[in-house]
């Protein structure tokens, strides 16, 4: 029981009448020879570490060692308390938790890579917002992580998930696609809808370059995580409405791979292009590397 494409994954879901998450649990169990319960328990440990990073991150107002990030989760929380945010409670909280996780990452705190550290804010941000606002339990969230991991597994093996290899589209793009699919399955959408949500999310990230100021996973990475969590909910809503991606998800991943392969080295995490070489980006680098 394994799959190398979204089409194969969906065929498995349909043949076994299982969700993407259930297929992933069964795959892990058969591959490792360990009981399903143990597989689920392993994922739960990761979920708990995500929650710890969020709790620390929301409370921590300190700056990262670089001085260019930190304290924004706290600031956003103060704003959300007024209840006047335009994006609503669910996206508001997702953004706050994404800030919290990514800021902890910049402080060299302990986080869970989903699929990378640079994109670690998006998935926990989305899932813990569902937990806070719609009373989904940790058990639901664990299954959502399996949905996300199945999507990430296909993307990682067909294309790439790191900024150095394929630009930010590969990193924040993959994470956003994973989160969108996870939200759809949590909301009882079909596997097909989940895969369409992933395709819709990833399409909107195609071409995004990896251009971190001073090479740090802070600017623009943290805010791209925050915006990614917001976009994941939009993509999930579109898919849950029954709207489909005209380009199949596997082909979107193929396009992402093609774009990443042709992306100049300056835009693949080398900090030699884009925002990294703006006057402000260059000045920050000079100050930090001094």
């Amino acid at each position: 029981m394994d799959f190398a494409s979204m089409e194969e994954l969906l065929a498995l879901c349909e043949a076994t009448n299982k969700s993407i998450a259930e297929v992933m649990v069964a795959r892990e169990s058969s591959k490792s020879g360990r009981p399903e319960q143990e597989i689920v328990e392993g994922m739960k440990q990761r979920l708990v570490r995500m929650k710890e990073a969020i709790d620390q991150g929301v409370a921590d107002r300190t700056l990262a060692p670089s001085g260019i990030s930190g304290g924004d989760a706290y600031k956003l929380e103060r704003y959300l308390e007024k209840g006047e945010q335009l994006t609503g409670q669910i996206v508001g909280d997702a953004m706050k938790f994404a800030f919290a996780t990514s800021e902890m990452n910049a402080r060299m705190g302990i986080i869970v890579a989903t699929p990378t550290a640079g994109s670690a804010g998006i998935l926990p941000g989305c899932l813990f917002s569902l937990h806070e606002n719609q009373k989904y339990t940790f058990e639901h969230l664990v299954m959502a992580l399996f949905t996300a991991s199945a999507i990430g597994y296909v993307i990682a093996n067909r294309a790439f998930i790191s900024g150095a290899a394929g630009g930010c589209q590969a990193e924040v793009g993959s994470a956003t696609a994973m989160a969108a699919a996870a939200i759809v399955e949590t909301k009882q959408g079909t596997p097909r809808q989940a895969v369409h949500a992933a395709a819709i999310a990833l399409k909107s990230m195609l071409g995004l370059v990896c251009d971190p100021v001073a090479g740090l996973v802070e600017v623009p990475c943290i805010k791209r995580n925050v915006l990614g969590s917001s976009l994941a909910f939009s993509a999930a809503d579109i898919a849950l409405a029954g709207i489909e991606s005209q380009i199949p998800c596997d082909e979107v991943i193929g396009a992402m791979y093609e774009i990443g392969k042709k992306m100049p080295r300056a835009y693949r995490e080398t900090a030699l292009g884009g925002l990294a070489v703006t006057p402000t980006g260059s000045a920050v680098k000079e100050r930090i590397m001094k």
Binding site: M24, A113, F146, A148, Y153, L216
Partner: peptide, 15 residues
């Protein structure tokens, strides 16, 4: 495996 996608649990900032 899912460990490769949801994980590792790690000290930041870059996987």
């Amino acid at each position: 495996s899912y460990f490769d996608i949801i994980g590792p649990i790690m000290v930041g900032p870059s996987s």
